[in-house]
Amino acid sequence: MPAAAEILTEDQRDCYQELTNVAMGQAADRLARLLNAYVVLPIPKISVIENSDLNMALQGATGDSSVSAVCQGFIGAGISGEAMLMFNDASFASLASLMKYEGPLTQEAELELLMDTASVLIGACIHGIGDQLEIVFNQGHPVVLGQHCDLKDLVAYGNNGWDKALAIEIHYTIEHVNIDCELLLLFTEESVKTLNKKVDYLLD
């Protein structure tokens, strides 16, 4: 992919994939303990996307169904990034039952489930990557991008002044139940330069 080659070498891409593999495993372990279920781990997808492709990347991740999403910025060692967690809305019923959530599944209840899951998955994943690169990331406050919305409306948020970004996509599913979520980590081109130096050090 030409866009990727300008920012990443194949060795660097491979290294990001492996770092993510380890970090998402740690995050999955936390989630598995919270839900008392087995989290199916995919091979993470590492790519370089243009701002205008974000919509497509997300579409591929969630399909056409309505989604709820949270985003959270993080920063450390001259690197800033954005994490975005999207749930297929059909997931909430199963999520509520696994978390032994009592009472009706109101919008507020779903919001709580969304935030609880986001704090586990986003936090563990970011720190997992940071630990391996010896970077301490500080997380900003999580922001709800929307509940039960169309993806197009979510993506309007994405136009925040970058052209190209490193995208790390992790598609988590839970065994035997209908829970489907996508964690997307985005690093802008400037941050990737700094990240690449850290990665090169590991590759040496």
Binding site: N21, A23, G25, Q26, A28, D29, A32, Y38, V39, L41
Partner: peptide, 9 residues
């Protein structure tokens, strides 16, 4: 040797 550290795995 795996990153999948869930007890189940």
């Amino acid at each position: 040797v795996s990153g999948d550290i869930q007890p189940d795995a």
